[in-house]
Structure formats: C-alpha cells, structure tokens
Design a binder for these strands. Structure first.
Lengths: 348, 348
DNA sequence: TTGTAAGCGTTATCAG
DNA sequence: CTGATAACGCTTACAA
C-alpha cells in the first residue's frame, strides 16, 4: 500500500540517488545509469532527460566517497609539497591543480616540513584516502630509503621538481644545464673566482645546478676551490649568510652564483651591507627568474625554468601511470636570461 | 568445514579490516573496536595489543572513504584559494594545512582563477567530496550572490583573507587600520599629494586598505583627488602601470601607497625606469612585509600583516563551527614597519 | 569483551 | 531499458 509515495527522507542534508529515484518513481539503479548519460545528446531518452532535470532541481551532488568505495577509484591525487611559500613551488602546485581539475581529479594537499619523516607521514595519511596517484616534490637525494618507503605504498607516484634516483620517475627542469649556463656565462665574462651559494645538499635541484656550474668552470681549465662552494638553505637568510662567508674569504670571488633567486636576493642584500655594489664589485646570477627579479633596481641575470609546465607535465605523466601503467621521466629545458647584475670583473 | 581458514583475499592491494580479522581469528567489528583503543595504555587487553600488532605487520591503513561513508564525516576540509603564487596566500594556505593536519583533517585544495563562477564551480566539486568544512579566500565584495551561493551548499564555511558582508564569518587582518597607518605615516612625513595603487575593487583587502589610507589623509584636512587612486591588480605589472598613470598626472604625487608589496615592487621598477629615485623623489609604502622587501637595496616601508596566523585561526574557527555550530569573525592586528623607502617630500 | 547484522550511497551484474 | 540485488570497507546498536 504505502509504496513509493513518501518524498524520501534525504539522509543528512544532501539528496541521494534514492531520493531522486523516489521523486521520479524509478529505481536507484536507473537513476545512477541515467545520470551518467548525456542529457543533451540527441538520442537521450525522455526519461534520461527527466531524471537529469529532477536531479538538478533537487540540487543533487553525487557522493564521491560512496562512488569511490564501490569503484575503487577516488579521482583524487595526493600532492606532498613542502615549501609552498616558495613561488616556484606554488607555481608548480597551481599548475598541478589546474591540470588535475581539467582531468576530473581533485588534489589532496600536504605541506609538511622538508624532512623525510614528515613527508612519509603525510604520504601515509594520503594513502588512507585511497588516492589514485601521488606527486612528491621534495625527494631527498641522500636518502634512498625515502623512495623505497614511498614505493612500498603501492600507489602510482611521480616526483616533481627534485628528481629521485632509480625507480621513481620524475619530471624536473634541466638543473644541471641551468647551472652550466650560469657558470659558462660568468666564465665568458672573464670571472675566474666564482662563488656558489649552493643550497642544501639533499635537494637534486641545488645539487645539479651546482655541479653543472662547476663543470662549466672546470671545463675551461679553471679550478674551483672547495671553499667557494657554500651550502645553505633556499631562503633569503641562506643567501645572506652564504654571501658573507664567501666575501670573508682571503681571496673572495668576483662573481656569485646563487642556486635560486630568493637566496640571490639575500646575497644582494649582504653585498650591499658590506658597502659593495652589484655588478661593479660582484657579479650575481640567480636561478628561476621569479617575477620580481626583473623589477629590481639592478635586475638579476638568472636562469629561467618552467615551473608551471613542470607541474602539468608531471600530472599528465602520472595519469599515464594510473591509466596505462607506464610513465616517463622528463627534463624540461631552461634558458639563461642576461640582465644587469653581471658584468666583467673589476680590474684592480 | 572450510571456515575461517583462508588468509582472506585482500580486496585490491590494501588489507582491510576483514583481512586482519581473518588473520587474527576474530570478527571485523572486534578489529574495528580494538584499533580505536590505545594499545600503549596500561589497561589495554591482550587481544587489543595483538590486533594492533598484526594490523601493523600487515601494513593496514584504514579506508577513510569507507569510514566517512558510514559516519558521514570525511575529516576533510575544502580550501578554495586562487592566487596561490602570492606569498601571502601561500603562507595562509600552509598554515591552514598545518593546523588541519594537527587536528586530524586533510585539505582538498582548489586554486581556480580569482573569478566568482570559477570559485563556485570549485566549491561544487568539493561538496561532492562531502567536505566537513570549507575555507574560501577570495570573496568578491561586489557580488553578494557569491556568498548566497556558497551558503546554499549547507557546509560550515569561513572566509579568510578577504571578508564578506553579512552572513559569512571571516578571519582577516585589519586592512583598514593597515591602510590608515600607511596614510598617517606619509602625512606625518609631510606628504600632501599621495597616490594609491589600490588593487582590484572587488577585494576587501585592497578596498579596506585604500579606504583606511584615504581616511588617514582626509582626517588631516588634506584632500584626496579621485585621480590619485588607480585600480589595478595585485601583480608586479599592476604596480608598474599604476605607477606610470600616477606619475603621468599633471600634478603627480610625492608618495605612493601600494596595497601590496608585489605591486610596490612594480611601482619601484616604474619609478626607476623614469629616472626617478626612491625615496628621494618618491616615497613608497608597500603592504604585507613579504620576506624580500627588507632585503631590497632600498628596503620598503610596509605594513606587517599576520598571514600565517590568519590561516590557523581561520581553521580553528571553522572547527568550532563544525563541532559546536558556532564561530566568530576575527580581525588580526597589523603594524607599520618603517624602512628606507619613505622620507620627507623633496623641497622644490 | 565479542559476534551479529544493518546500513552509509554508489555501481556492477544479472534477469526480466 | 529497467529493477532487483549484492558488494565496496567501515561503524555501531544490539544481543549474547
């Protein structure tokens, strides 16, 4: 008797398939099927259109948790990105999110500190959400166990920004070549003593840029003293302290390559604080070409690296990994941008 | 006969409660209960410990989608944050994420363009994930329908960064007072013609800072010409074009207040390109005190605003809204940082 | 303390 | 094309 009459109590706020089914007078499975057909299509049946219309009216939003439980697909990508306040990282993150949205995925973001254990813990939490794929931006090169642990989760994973050795695919920019370009530029200008504010050792970005720069210098037959390479962090403060250490040397450099623009800004500040001037006393090369270095009173010579494309390409590769079970590592090209912060060394 | 003997086929990769139950030889419900007791506790029963141990061994990770489906709680917060590449936004986002993680929540991030419809669409997508709460950073002040539409989703929501009128609670910094401090500072130095690079009209941050600055000036009996207020975006380019428009005036300003540091960097670039110098010809006040403006050759006078606290406080309020059904709007204090970019107006 | 069973909202399979 | 039914993995009365 009392059959299919009640408007169906919408569980907890949101209407469900059942609610629509009751409203229309059909079975839930019919609604489910109908809703994944295109109502605009010319061969859409009358009832498909009707179901779409009513669903729309009722403000139906599918419950993706329920769907995911059934299909074993969450359409969710985990992103582990320390240092989000670095413009380059943020650009990459934004690009990942855009590409993911375009592909029908959503982003679960974790921004733990740039430490191995914190990142692994974030990954565990994301794994509990049954993410379909994982993007990790801050692999530590000196901790192969990090990669091991990540792979153990059994989730399609790609590294971005920093590469990983071996089994983990990565989409990066060509940091080695970028470093090479920087070194080559300074050598070509006539510099013979070149300091490197080299960033942290565990980051492949910093490491590769440093090695590339060294290679460019030594391949010209110029020696690179150990003391000319100072390891720091990626922040302004790192640039400041790194510059002071270099300028305190008995035989200080005439040029400094900082492996990222933020540190380069610190270098510039330190140089100024010592009463020296760029580029007259010290030539300076940064890295990344973040938007503001071109607007500084002395615009920086720097390396332009494609942060946003790196993000979208990484997501594309990850999707390939998810859907086709295979992905590739890619290294995106970089280029030298010459501006006012570099010139020939001062003749004493 | 063949009862509870097989090791239980772990559904699709990850072990489930059932798998553990079979391994231990108890029922799933027992496992479920045991796993949410603390095995370290002195009064933890032997079997609780055993179940924890085996779960650990098998690498069990709870399926939060399944749990959420049952409990109607996703332990997930949606964050809609356009302009993630702005350091201030990124700082806020990072703080939200940290606070959320600490509270056992995870972040679903969307970074749509800073447009009403794009943001609303992101919110719809997040709603499908049954997020427990929502944080929106870029309310458009001139679009009250935006707030209406957001509230319609029926999700506990708080605005951050930019306030909203009326029904939507917001955690912001005291932009009006910040603008006031900037204006007051310039007037106190003796400036009478002060230009404002005022950002977009739809952002309460930009708007309030501008209004505060105007109030500070007019309350000293100084008139603010319409032409001295130029609306732009928040980017370097906006600062450049805004500055040029101001400096092209028949009676150009002797000081410029840019409502954010990024635009201020653009202003500084434009001033330099016209052969003028800061602060000799033009005094400049920025806003936010982003890390690098203190390291510039001429460090900026600016307003320091607590971007990270804003994020964590917003999350705390949101949690109150979720758990207790009530939250408050808060306005965090700001302060003036005087550096080298401002001085008394040049005497002609 | 433990097992039983129902149910969260969805999709997939299978009959009609 | 539609309806019935089971299942995804988990939680939670309720009963033993």
């Amino acid at each position: 008797m009392s059959n299919e009459t009640e408007p169906a109590p919408a569980a907890h706020g949101q209407p469900t398939l059942k609610a629509i089914a009751d409203a229309v007078g059909v079975h839930v499975s019919t609604v489910s099927r109908a809703l994944k057909r295109d109502p605009e299509s010319p061969d859409a049946s009358k009832s498909v259109r009707r179901i779409h219309r009513i669903a729309e009216q009722m403000g139906y939003r599918p419950n993706l948790m329920a769907a995911g439980l059934r299909t074993n697909r969450s359409y969710t990508i985990g992103v582990v990105m320390p240092r989000l306040t670095d413009v380059v990282i943020a650009q990459t993150c934004e690009a990942i999110e855009e590409a993911a949205t375009a592909a029908g995925y959503q982003i679960l973001l974790a921004t733990p500190p740039d430490e191995v254990n914190a990142q692994l813990q974030s990954i565990q939490m994301l794994a509990s959400r049954r993410i379909d794929g994982l993007i990790v931006s801050s692999i530590h090169l000196d901790r192969p166990d990090m990669v091991e642990e990540i792979l153990r989760a059994g989730i399609p994973t790609i590294a971005v920004n920093r590469r990983a050795d071996g089994k983990l695919h990565a989409v990066t920019t060509d940091d080695y070549h970028g470093g090479y370009l920087a070194g080559e530029h300074l050598v070509n200008l006539g510099h013979r003593r070149i300091g490197i504010v080299a960033g942290p050792r565990h980051a492949s970005t910093a490491w590769d840029r440093t090695q590339g720069c060294i290679e460019a210098i030594t391949s010209r037959g110029i020696e690179v003293d150990e003391e000319l390479i100072v390891h720091t962090d990626f922040e302004v403060q790192g640039g400041i302290s790194g510059a002071h250490r270099l300028l305190n040397l008995a035989d200080p450099p005439t040029a400094i390559f900082a492996v990222n623009d933020t540190a380069a800004i610190g270098v510039a500040g330190a140089v100024r604080d010592r009463g020296l001037s760029i580029p007259r006393d010290i030539s300076l090369v940064g890295y990344n070409d973040i938007p503001l270095v071109s607007q500084l009173p002395v615009p920086f010579t720097t390396i332009s690296s494609p942060a946003a494309p790196m993000g979208s390409v990484a997501l594309q590769q990850l999707l390939r990994g998810i859907n086709e079970g295979e992905m590739s590592s890619l290294k995106l090209p970089v280029s030298l941008i010459v501006r006012a912060s570099t010139t020939v060394p001062r003749q004493n």
